[in-house]
Design a binder for these strands. Sequence first.
DNA 1: CGCCGGTGTTGCGCCAGCGCAAACTTCCGC
DNA 2: GCGGAAGTTTGCGCTGGCGCAACACCGGCG
Lengths: 240, 240
Amino acid sequence: MAKVDPSLVAHLPLFAGFSTEELGDLLREARSVRFAKNSAIFEEGEDAHTFFVLLHGHVRASKTTPSGEQVVVRYVSPGETFGVAMAIGLPNYPATATAVDDSVVLAWPASTWPRLVAKFPALATNTLQTIGSRLQETHTRVVEMSTQQVEQRVAHALLRLAKQSGRKVEHGVEIDFPISRQDIAQMTGTTLHTVSRILSGWESRGLIEGGRQRIVLREPHNLSVLAEAIQGEDVPPDRP
Amino acid sequence: MAKVDPSLVAHLPLFAGFSTEELGDLLREARSVRFAKNSAIFEEGEDAHTFFVLLHGHVRASKTTPSGEQVVVRYVSPGETFGVAMAIGLPNYPATATAVDDSVVLAWPASTWPRLVAKFPALATNTLQTIGSRLQETHTRVVEMSTQQVEQRVAHALLRLAKQSGRKVEHGVEIDFPISRQDIAQMTGTTLHTVSRILSGWESRGLIEGGRQRIVLREPHNLSVLAEAIQGEDVPPDRP
DNA sequence: CGCCGGTGTTGCGCCAGCGCAAACTTCCGC
DNA sequence: GCGGAAGTTTGCGCTGGCGCAACACCGGCG
């Protein structure tokens, strides 16, 4: 637990439209907490006692099916909120959050939410925007899973990861946190075997450079070409 | 365009926590509009000039891919909001809305949203809850598409449709609006051929009763058994 | 420094579901 | 009541991607 400098977080979408004093008010109620790499921040089903803003590091949100398979819901980047279950009326977390890297978060007790929202209405509208974009992204994912082949989906996933967490590196853009083939499989609805095969193929074509929990995009452009590959070039069957 | 009786809509989630006068205020700004079966309410990409509450009928929200394939995002039931793009900061509708039945909606000009939210903060929090549940549902869909076979996904889709729009009928529960095999395919990420085969199979087993744009669930229970069918009964592979 | 567990690669066989094609049924408009 | 369009069913062959299995690699720890 530590004090947080308001100026460091003032630009985050969640705090848009807040004055310095208001921001101070808000931050006074938060604790700053550190989570070690691979530690759980909260578990699916646990009661949603806290909501978070990620300050540093990366967090994976995932859901587990009754039969034990995991699906990655999203990766959280610094500046984003997560664990806002109670804001949308859920008493329990709908997913598990794991720090994939050493991470630092701001944490508010969920019980403060109603009071904070009443005091700062912008909090509700800002959160609405955030949840709205996530809904959009998730719909995009559904559309991709419905219409595209595995290879294209993986390409899209990598490009998205690179955009949101890419670090420029000598020969391209590297995804800035440890990510396994298994993780990518769980993001795209396929198996680690298939992902491995696809990445191997791309690596031999020079599109990417792989490694243990590590991926570098060497030719993002050619990758996006691959991602948009058309399968049905003919006229779409319309509705009446 | 017509007046709307506040008492008819007071119980809707969007208006939770509103006094009768406040509700009157809100409704005064809305028009009531009728859409004929199969008419478009708005199109994907169009600027989001209006937001809606469905009073009567059923509306399909769908997205179209660059290559022309359609994916059904959801079916809207009476009492639900739709077209709230601007509330989440989008200038354009992210999907197309089509009346699948003769439908009646309440329509507000999008331009009134900021003023309404400022005046009635509950509007923001209620919408947040709504969008939040939709996000949950969409995540569920992603998980299903990632882990289940087509047959199970179709079973889930039918059960969900029956729950939200089922009409009790002599031999079971009928889905209360016209829905084609194609529609179901677009909800579950498969083809109308596969859906047709699956439904035929179920019909011959007496689980359902089909017809042109019509489905009756005769044995919902057995259908849910089918939906939960386990493929990997073994121990799940954990993370470290 | 050598072992060991987690991670990644690759070959092989199989099958769920797709694509194509053709026929059939139902509804609607004329 | 007749024609045609939309929706549905069904057969058939093919293939993308899965499941299994074996192996290779890397990095950390004792």
